[in-house]
Design a protein around this nucleic acid. Structure first.
Lengths: 185, 185
DNA sequence: AATAAATGTCTCAAATATGTGACATTTTAT
DNA sequence: ATAAAATGTCACATATTTGAGACATTTATT
């Protein structure tokens, strides 16, 4: 199927570029189990592929995060679901973050993708502040640390998921337990 | 100074390759503030540079970790110092891990570097098991998760260190607090 | 100041990566 | 079973990266 193949290429590209941005397209093609020629039928050049990946990540992560936020009116449940959403997005989520924090990135209000990023970022901050005010989360930890811990635990979880035979749902529980205990009062 | 330049190239290479293994050598040279020609005077080709980086990471991380382990006879203090050691090693530590876990890597007892990696890995496992038996750390979390959380928190800490104005010693304390509370009973 | 050591500049050949045309083979849909 | 769509194979031109020689310039040492 055409959409299926395109999707596989994009997934392979995100996983590959996440740890190796300059990787030759042959590596992406191999990972997607297609020929380099086929890859070029979907994306005329590297730039187009990267751009599509970025957009795909934005859309996908934004959707998952917003679903997580709207899943409940309880801050704690929202936070938990945001963690799971990050894990489910896998490599997309770390690459998504990298792109918005890398040196060359010009973060601006006018860039539509940055608006989404800001929305998620601000929602996260609000949730943390609320939980701090409710006396659930420690007030001595800066939000920047909690934010960083959140993404760090997400990538840990994704790594374990890919490299061990543990049950994914169990790992997610451990991740949430470790994260919450790591920041709660 | 010659040793100084070589060192700068290696540090630049580690930082660059950590997030972009296939990055052109020009990027490494730029980051090290030397010409590509100079880089090639120290390392005849890419392979040699990567090999030297690997060795440098092994030596450096191994040294820091062993110092941490020998810093105390208390398991808890050892664990704490291993976390700080990882943070101090920075990009070296994450790259060090990546190299030993990547697909192509043929991990063998005969490879001297792998022996060191195994030593650290086994020491870490022993510390965790001891703390579990002492009733300090939860027994329901698999060591693979704890191991992964450890490296995840180290990279979170390195990220915050590079991207915020928070005091590094304070961040390290938060990291240790979050890590310990995340796994303790 | 003279010398040696280190680095930079410019150049170039070889290797690798990129993008595409032409056509064969396989897969999918009718 | 056939036509259409998708993918693979091979070939090729172009672009980029790589590694090194020759010599100029800068930096350190005495």
């Amino acid at each position: 199927m055409i959409a299926e193949t395109k999707n596989r290429i994009v997934e392979a590209a995100i996983e590959t570029f996440n740890s190796d941005l300059s990787a030759p397209l042959q590596k992406v093609a191999d990972r997607a189990d297609v020929t380099r020629r086929t890859l070029h039928r979907y994306f005329s050049d590297r730039e187009e592929l990267v751009a599509f990946c970025e957009h795909e990540m934005e859309v996908s992560c934004k959707k998952a995060m917003i679903t997580a936020i709207k899943s409940s009116s309880e801050s704690l449940a929202q936070l938990e679901n945001m963690l799971y959403a990050g894990v489910d997005c896998g490599a997309k989520y770390s690459f998504f973050h990298k792109l918005h924090q890398r040196e060359g990135h010009n973060h601006s209000k006018s860039n539509e993708d940055c608006v989404d990023y800001d929305f998620i970022y601000k929602s996260f901050n609000k949730i943390i502040k609320d939980l701090q005010n409710e006396g659930i989360i420690r007030k001595d930890m800066p939000i920047s640390w909690i934010q960083s811990l959140h993404t760090g635990i997400i990538s840990s979880t994704v790594n374990v998921k890919d490299g061990s035979n543990l049950n994914i749902e169990k790992i997610k529980e451990f991740a949430w337990t470790s994260f919450l205990n790591g920041i709660k009062k």
